[in-house]
C-alpha cells in the first residue's frame, strides 16, 4: 500500500505534466519512466483529453510507441507511450532537451545545403549539356 501511495504521490506530476496512476520504474532530472496498469489506448486517450485544449502538441504513431511532442515552451519535451501487448504499459516523460533542438537545427541546416547542392549539380549538368549542344550546332551553321 505504501509503495502504491508513494508512487501515486510522486508520480502524479512531472515537470508540470499530470501523470497516470502507476509505479515509478526510473526517475532522474531529465525523465521519468512509469509502469501503468492500463492499455496503450487508454493512456493515449488520457493524454489526448488532458492536452486537448493545449497548443503546439504533436502526436506521432510509431511502430513501438506513440510519441507526443511539445513544440511550445513547456518544460517537458515528449511523452513516450510504449505499445505493450500486456495489461501494463510503459510511459516515459522526457524533459525539454537542448540536444534535440541543436540536433534538429544542425540537421536542417545541412538539409538546406543538400537541397541547394542538388540544384547546383542539376544546373551544372544542364549547363554542360547546353554548352555542348551549342558547340555542336555552331559548326553546322558555318
Amino acid at each position: 500500500m505504501l509503495v502504491v501511495f508513494v508512487s501515486s504521490v510522486f508520480g502524479s506530476e512531472f515537470l508540470g505534466l499530470q501523470l497516470p496512476e502507476g509505479k515509478i520504474l526510473e526517475k532522474t532530472d531529465t525523465y521519468i519512466k512509469l509502469e501503468v496498469p492500463k492499455s496503450h489506448d487508454e493512456i493515449l486517450k488520457f493524454y489526448k483529453d488532458l492536452l486537448k485544449n493545449e497548443k503546439d502538441i504533436k502526436y506521432r504513431d510509431w511502430a513501438e510507441m506513440t510519441y507526443i511532442e511539445d513544440d511550445g515552451a513547456r518544460p517537458w519535451h515528449s511523452i513516450n507511450i510504449y505499445k505493450n501487448q500486456g495489461q501494463t504499459t510503459i510511459v516515459q516523460v522526457n524533459k525539454d532537451k537542448w540536444s534535440w533542438i541543436i540536433g534538429t537545427l544542425v540537421l536542417r541546416y545541412i538539409a538546406v545545403f543538400v537541397v541547394l547542392v542538388i540544384l547546383m549539380i542539376a544546373l551544372s549538368i544542364s549547363g554542360q549539356v547546353f554548352s555542348r549542344l551549342f558547340k555542336e550546332e555552331e559548326p553546322k551553321k558555318v
Binding site: L105, R108, Y109, V115, L116, V117, L119, M120, I121, L123
Partner: peptide, 17 residues
Amino acid sequence: SNPKSLILGAGAQLGVF
C-alpha cells in the same frame, strides 16, 4: 552561369538556425 553560388545562398542561412 555560376551554379556554385548556390552554396553561398545555403551558407548564408547560418543565422536563421
